[in-house]
């Protein structure tokens, strides 16, 4: 039950993009086309779970030595190295997957959602399994928001009815505001 609460909470109620403003750059940047939105979403789920699997034990080690304040530096280095290794491993062993996700991987290194989920897991005091579930949910929430948003953008982008000052990025943000408003309806679900 606990795991289900975490999962639903992070996907719908505290959606990383729409309620917590994490990972906005790729959300706005790569959501133009449905295909790339799905690719990016899957790559984020993948990296989030891996990064959590790596950083959670490392945090225990840091705390053991009483150097928990190095969290930020250590986490970002682990994530950067991990993403690089994953890219190399995919290229060597699963080329078809690398072809689909490879483009997105370097972008994810500096995605604040990945670092954010690792730090949140520690701050919330989740155990290892809960952390993994939380990370997976955060990624799924990101994918969900991306897919819905790319559908909305297909209708609204480049629409001549949009006022001149709002054309381009402002109308994209207004669209995001509407989607975020819709997701607020999930408030109180968990």
């Amino acid at each position: 039950m606990n795991y289900l609460t975490i999962l639903l909470g992070i996907i719908l109620v505290n959606n990383y993009v729409l309620a917590q403003f994490l990972g906005i750059c790729p959300f706005l940047g790569v959501s133009k086309k449905l295909d790339s939105a799905v690719g990016m979403g899957i790559a984020v789920i993948f990296v989030m779970v891996l990064a959590t699997a790596a950083t959670w034990p490392i945090m225990r080690v840091l705390n053991n030595f009483g150097i928990g304040y190095l969290q930020t530096i250590v986490f970002i280095l682990i994530i950067a190295a991990l993403v690089q290794f994953v890219e190399m491993a995919l290229k060597k062993f699963i080329p078809s997957l690398h072809k689909a996700l490879g483009v997105f991987l370097p972008l994810i290194t500096t995605n604040c959602a990945v670092l954010g989920v690792c730090i949140t897991n520690i701050d919330e005091g989740y155990n290892y399994l809960e952390s993994l579930v939380n990370s997976f949910g955060a990624g799924v929430g990101f994918l969900l928001a991306m897919v819905i948003f790319s559908g909305m953008r297909a209708k609204i982008d480049d629409n001549p009815a949009v006022p001149k000052a709002f054309q381009g990025s402002p109308i994209v943000l207004v669209t995001a505001a509407l989607l975020s408003l819709a997701f607020m309806g999930f408030g109180g679900l968990v």
Partner: peptide, 26 residues
Amino acid sequence: MIIALAPGGFFVYACAIAAINFITKG
């Protein structure tokens, strides 16, 4: 309240960029 919550964040940011666009005329 809505302006201080998440949707308001997106909306106010959109308006700020639109205002800059309007002033500089793109």
